Computed example of a mutant assay.
Amino acid sequence: MKFLESSEMDAFAQTLTTGAIDCVIDFKMETYSSKMVTSEKKLWKENDKSVMWCERQPLGSYEEVVMSASPSVGHNHRLRHLSERSCSGGSDTDVDDYCIKDSISRKRLYDLTQVLNCSFPDHDFSNTSSEAFAFVNYNDMSRIVDSKMETVVRDYAVRREELWGLIEDAIVPKDCEIYSFKSQFEDDPFTEDGCMWAIAFIFYNKPLKRFVLLTVRCLSGRLDNTSEVFPDFSEDEDETQQK
């Protein structure tokens, strides 16, 4: 998996960081090729032989992702899970669709964890459960991101079009599988001290052989401002004692 540099994405991330309101925003929008590098091929072959890897792994709850991440959705508003069968019919296609969208292949799970490993090299997501991921549709995903960002980023209404334009150019969302990631409360950057909330989504476009990772962490700004609140008087004290 190779990181694909984008000066446009880097510049946009910087504008969001400088526009943060009463917090520190750690925003990532990164593109990766899905083609395995040599080390990944070796690791995948080792996992492929493991009896612990079932053919398919269960995914997490889509409704739980949307409800927990977006307070604007009321408790009485029921969202249709991507894996629910359509009320318009009960064909075999519906049954197959139900099974596929409630689970994930072991290869796809490996790919998703590798994207996180590449983006956060100081952490290891290799043993992340498949239930930490869930399918989401583009409309709900974009609404979640917008609702979070508009509360912590100055003039986000102006910047949002640029954000989704960059996503469109990089990955073509309508052709993607989109996964949310929910921390399992282990040692990861989404649960560390000072992280007030975090959201993470991974886009996969099979024809383009490409992933895009979109993560936002809202960090408390108190630690960064400690020096301003409590200035360092040690040097002044030393000079007074010498006099």
Score class of each variant (00 low, 15 high):
K107S: 06
R108C: 12
R108W: 11
Y110I: 04
Y110N: 10
T113V: 15
Q114L: 09
V115K: 00
N117H: 01
C118L: 14
C118E: 10
S119T: 05
D122H: 09
D122I: 12
D122K: 10
F125W: 12
S126I: 10
S126C: 03
S126D: 07
T128G: 08
T128D: 01
A132F: 00
A132W: 02
F133Y: 14
F135E: 00
F135N: 02
Y138R: 01
N139H: 08
D140T: 04
S142K: 14
R143F: 03
S147C: 09
K148Y: 08
M149G: 00
M149K: 00
E150K: 10
E150L: 05
E150V: 12
T151D: 10
T151Y: 08
V152I: 15
V153E: 08
R154Q: 12
A157C: 11
A157T: 09
V158P: 00
V158S: 12
V158D: 07
R159S: 05
R160A: 13
R160W: 07
R160E: 04
E161D: 09
E161Q: 08
W164Y: 15
G165R: 08
G165I: 10
L166A: 04
I167N: 01
E168M: 07
I171R: 04
V172H: 00
K174E: 14
D175R: 10
C176G: 12
E177S: 13
I178A: 06
Y179H: 13
F181T: 06
E186C: 03
E186W: 00
P189K: 02
F190G: 12
F190A: 00
T191G: 02
E192K: 02
E192L: 04
E192P: 00
G194I: 09
C195L: 02
C195M: 02
W197I: 11
A198W: 01
I199Q: 13
A200R: 06
A200T: 15
F201S: 04
I202Y: 04
I202A: 03
I202M: 03
I202P: 03
